[in-house]
Amino acid sequence: MSAIPAAADVLAPDLEVLPLPEVAERLDLPINRVQQLLRDGQLLAERRNGILVVPAAFLAAGGVVKGLPGTVTVLRDSGFSTEEILRWLFTEDETLPGTPIEALRGDRGREVKRRAQALAF
């Protein structure tokens, strides 16, 4: 079994994050399935005080925010590390406006994915 990829603690300390058992509860999945989502890049985690946590903004009613897995895949394929992806998703962009994760949550996934693809060049 491969290790679960996780970033260092790179996000703002006041950003709401959830430990894996709570993520599993919110997604109504067993914890080993949440761990598999992390391994597969469907979700991203960071390690805070030795504990794996997932940003609460990655979860929506009924599952993972639509468009997040595809955006993560595009950025990974472009050579971005987990830390860089997390920073990008939570960095303000006045042209969106807001952050890419807010845009994904607001059903503007096509624009976020287009911008992620443009970062590859």
Score class of each variant (00 low, 15 high):
Ala3Cys: 08
Ile31Gln: 14
Ala120His: 09
Gly70Phe: 02
Pro69Trp: 03
Asp77Met: 13
Ala3Glu: 15
Lys113Cys: 00
Gly63Pro: 14
Ala60Asp: 13
Asn32Arg: 11
Leu29Lys: 14
Leu43Glu: 03
Asp107Ala: 12
Gly109Ile: 07
Ser78Thr: 02
Val23Gly: 07
Leu104Ile: 01
Ser2Ile: 02
Phe90Cys: 02
Ala3Arg: 15
Trp88Met: 07
Val74Arg: 12
Asp93Tyr: 00
Gly79Cys: 01
Arg26Asn: 07
Pro21Gln: 06
Thr95Ile: 00
Arg110Met: 11
Gly67Glu: 09
Leu37Lys: 08
Gly50Val: 03
Arg26Leu: 14
Pro13Tyr: 05
Thr82Leu: 02
Thr73Ala: 15
Asp9Asn: 14
Gln35Tyr: 06
Trp88Pro: 09
Pro13Asp: 14
Leu29His: 08
Leu27Asn: 09
Pro5Ala: 02
Gly109Asp: 12
Phe90Ile: 00
Val34Arg: 09
Pro69Ile: 01
Arg39Thr: 08
Pro97Tyr: 02
Glu102Gln: 11
Ile85Gly: 08
Asp77Pro: 00
Glu16His: 05
Leu15Pro: 04
Glu94Gly: 03
Arg105Asn: 07
Pro19Phe: 01
Trp88Arg: 05
Thr71Tyr: 04
Gly109Phe: 09
Val23His: 08
Asp9Gln: 11
Pro100His: 03
Arg33Trp: 04
Leu68Ser: 05
Ile31Tyr: 04
Leu104Thr: 01
Glu16Tyr: 02
Leu15Trp: 07
Pro5Ser: 01
Phe90Thr: 00
Asn32Pro: 02
Pro5Ile: 03
Ala116Val: 07
Leu75Trp: 05
Val64Ala: 07
Glu94Ala: 10
Val17Lys: 14
Leu119His: 07
Asp93Ala: 00
Glu22Val: 05
Gly79Pro: 05
Val53Arg: 14
Ala57Arg: 15
Asn49Pro: 00
Leu68Phe: 12
Leu44Ala: 14
Ser2Cys: 04
